[in-house]
Amino acid sequence: MKNGNAAKIKPQKIKGQKFIKTQVTPVEPCDPNAMIEVQHLTKSYGDLKVLSDINEKIFQGEKIAIIGPSGGGKSTFLRCLNVLEDPTDGYVFFEGNNLCNLKVNINVQRRRMGMVFQQFNLFNNLTVLKNITLAPVRIGLQDLRAAQRKNFFIRFKNLFKSTNKKMPLLPVQKTAKEIKSEARENAITLLQRIGLADKCNVYPSTLSGGQRQRIAIVRALAMNPKVMLFDEPTSALDPEMVGEVLQLIKQLADDGMTMVIVTHEMGFAREVATRVLFMADGKIAEQGSPQQIFQNPQSDRLKDFLSKVL
């Protein structure tokens, strides 16, 4: 999009929308049925184009496995889905909200998108339990304070209004204590589910890789996400620990969680995924059901890739 006439297109000015300067493609209306929609997604680092013009829709309940050679843009694509990486051009919609719009509060949108990293990224300075409760508690308190602040102004304005015109107060259902104890109980239930309840007050550095990754998954689950993004969840693990993590992911899949998994575990992709995307050279080179991809590959690129990994 950078060369030729396209560079002269100016970003559109739409009320309530603001984009970074490199985003020049016009926004198209998004599909209301899609959970995540990606439009013309392009990402380049300097001259290196990592993703070029990707269009894709992800629907509720789908389990998508992304496979492909390294350097093909798999991880970058996944990180663009919750805008951890700013796209150079193109847009990502999550439930109808354009995440690339700088006026959309990205933090609110990210609460509903869980992400699991290759390197676990547990918070080293917090215990396992605090790792899990940090986000629910902080965000709960933030919302509580915002509601209280707004209610204060509403009450103030109501002083000057007649009885029938008074504005209703925002509902404040939980106290700060309740938010904390609820997050704690929820975290312990989740930890019991993965059988690590006894590790509550331990720091992450004392845990094994498999345990850390399972806790990282649980940490994302504690926010009740609608979609889970897995960025090579088993690549940094010892071989004997891969199983326990994949089992947990499979359980989640069976519970009906929408998920996008970047993985090198072909067996797992074949078993769990409802759709497989093959990414190479910054494009989705081929996609289809697992059977179609693994048993009846069309493009030479995919055949070549599969012959190397299978």
Partner: peptide, 18 residues
Amino acid sequence: VDKGQMEAARSLGLSYFT
């Protein structure tokens, strides 16, 4: 501090300053 720590926190919906 590892960059992943900030990314993990942001991916959970925490603001930059939190």
